[in-house]
Design a protein around this nucleic acid. Structure first.
Lengths: 332, 332
DNA sequence: TTTTGCTAAGAAAACGTTTTCCAGAAAACG
DNA sequence: CGTTTTCTGGAAAACGTTTTCTTAGCAAAA
């Protein structure tokens, strides 16, 4: 590191004490306009930028935040959602003067709570944005509940003094998109490809589906597709023959289903969920739910910042949109 | 931050001086096995983890590295390459005890060299992995050449004492894949969709294409597709009618070309470049060049670490593979 | 005039490490 | 047995900030 100019140099240049420079830097109240100006002039002249590391050590505030992403997700390289989370989080963090450290589940999978705590603490991490935690990620859940860090959970419940939750209304969204999908149709026998067993969003979406089924008197066969394209493909091969339509808890599964239908050479309408642009490449039109993942991640960072400033946790529901996705939506 | 236990506590527990603990921590030579054991016992007992921030301040070594990604890239949400870079870099960094800060071009676009330098320095960043810098990114290039940081350029030239370059042999790869694509065929009139004007890899690939054209006596019409699907689509619409085949400098453009051909309802064989799995979703078979982006990014971090330890820059050529991509390659 | 209250600015300790330098003991040497 | 060398461990300064405490100065109140 080339530390060219320090607060010390600024102080000398401006003819004031180090502490005074620091006060100007941190917008302390008790400093005269005159001194402020002198200091700012010196800062500009010397091209001083505060050393965030020293500042972090002294103030015990790092502004560092970890974005924790599911490992399973990027196993499927076509899954664009994690990247959207990253972009949204990083941009907002920049705006807020925070630093995002991206961490994958796999990196911390073998750790227990104490180890995780120490790992994050030694890195100076003060808050966590956790994406898609499931009921089975016990250690991570314990970490969140330990209240050692402020955290925001994307797509998982868990509001407390130190924890907020941010998500769309999955139940409602699944209900609505399926309803629209079925509107004016006479499909009764539905194959529903659910997400993960013990996944929060999966259960909510399933609830939405069930509610609609009750309302419309549908016969719904539920199978767990694990959010996997391949799994959806298999299940479609197995069950689609005797069904009227297929409703999926994710677009990736919808693609798997569509590909299977093509291979089987039968037609069944398919309904998706997520609104990923990959869908456009399957070359089909389809009803789905559009989530703005970048915006969700940005809101999560914003919320985390609020928590870190002393706010207490809350449940945030972001709006979704029902769309009909098609090729031209994507490339234009 | 909850600093539970410091080196001071360890020292007290082990009955040695602070400096001794530090020496054990950093594997200094002059410490007896007996003392080492005492210290390690104390560390284990207290669950001590060194505070990386204090360590960074004191040693003036942060181990922080910025991964700089092209802004244009993620405008196309289906582009999976940046995510592959991120995964590869982060995993290797973890292994090496380094920290990756992901930075997008857009964030630093409006800065001049001095500002960029200060920005990175204030963040304690010691090295850069820069992806896809082009000839027009003058400031970033100046930053690299300023030698204030060690850097590794992915897909761009620029070897010096402080800078390494890592890339496949684009010229050769383009030559080979096109040759294989044309093998046994009689296509003579080729539409070549090149990448960016002033892009390093684009020029290299074009050279490879030209070499083959000379060799085989092909008539090649070169148009700049800017690595954009939409642009490739337009160019295909415009020129494909009078050509025998289309060779593209990226898979994304190949997809654009294919979609256009479908819309035009004519058949022309298409050749791609990159081997992205998205290709599988276009539902076609195609010749292309497979690059392992995760591995490339991992090697880049490894190389950066070598530079930071005093090694000097070098040019690293990683191998590529010629493949024929198809749906099942992707989902299974 | 003396006291009180207030503001602005400086002095200095602290944050948790690393690293240089030094002292003492033990070992090697003549 | 005295001298030098080697080895181990400790003391203390340093890294660049923040923050608490103190003081000087001055105006208002008594």
């Amino acid at each position: 590191m080339y530390e060219l100019v320090s607060i010390r140099d600024v102080a000398k240049q401006a003819g004031v004490a180090i502490s005074t420079v620091s006060k100007v830097l941190n917008h302390y109240p008790n400093v005269s306009d005159e001194t402020k100006e002198k200091v700012n002039a010196a800062i500009a002249e010397l091209g001083f930028v505060p050393n965030t590391i020293a500042s972090a050590l002294s103030s015990k505030k790092t502004g560092r935040v970890a974005l924790v992403l599911d490992a399973n997700r990027h196993a499927q390289t076509v899954d664009e959602i994690p990247m959207q989370y990253i972009i949204g989080a990083i941009n907002k963090a920049k705006e807020k003067g925070m630093d995002i450290i991206t961490v994958f589940f796999t990196m911390i999978a073998e750790m227990n709570v104490e180890e995780m705590t120490r790992y994050f603490q030694s890195q100076g991490i003060e808050g966590l944005v956790i994406c898609d935690i499931s009921k089975e990620d016990i250690t991570l859940r314990q970490l969140v509940e330990s209240s050692k860090f402020k955290s925001v959970l994307i797509d998982a419940p868990g509001v407390s003094e130190n924890t907020s939750s941010i998500h769309i209304d999955n139940t409602k969204a699944q209900y609505e998109v399926a309803k629209k999908f079925l509107e004016g149709k006479t499909y009764k026998k539905i194959l529903y490809l659910s997400g993960k067993k013990n996944g929060y969003v999966s259960e909510e979406r399933l609830n939405g589906m069930n509610r609609l089924a009750d309302e419309l008197g549908l016969k719904v066969l539920v199978r767990t597709g694990n959010f996997s394209e391949l799994e959806a493909r298999k299940l479609t091969m197995q069950y689609a023959g005797s069904k009227d339509a297929i409703i999926c808890a994710s677009d990736l599964m919808a693609i798997g289903a569509m590909k299977a239908l093509i291979d089987m050479d039968i037609y069944r309408p398919v309904c998706g969920f997520d609104g990923v642009s990959l869908m456009g490449y399957a070359g089909k039109q389809m009803h789905t739910v559009r989530q703005d993942f970048q915006k969700i991640a940005a809101s999560a960072v914003e919320e985390l910042s609020r928590l870190m400033e002393g706010g207490s946790g809350q449940d945030i529901v972001v709006p979704h949109k029902l769309i009909r996705i098609k090729y031209l939506d994507v490339i234009s």
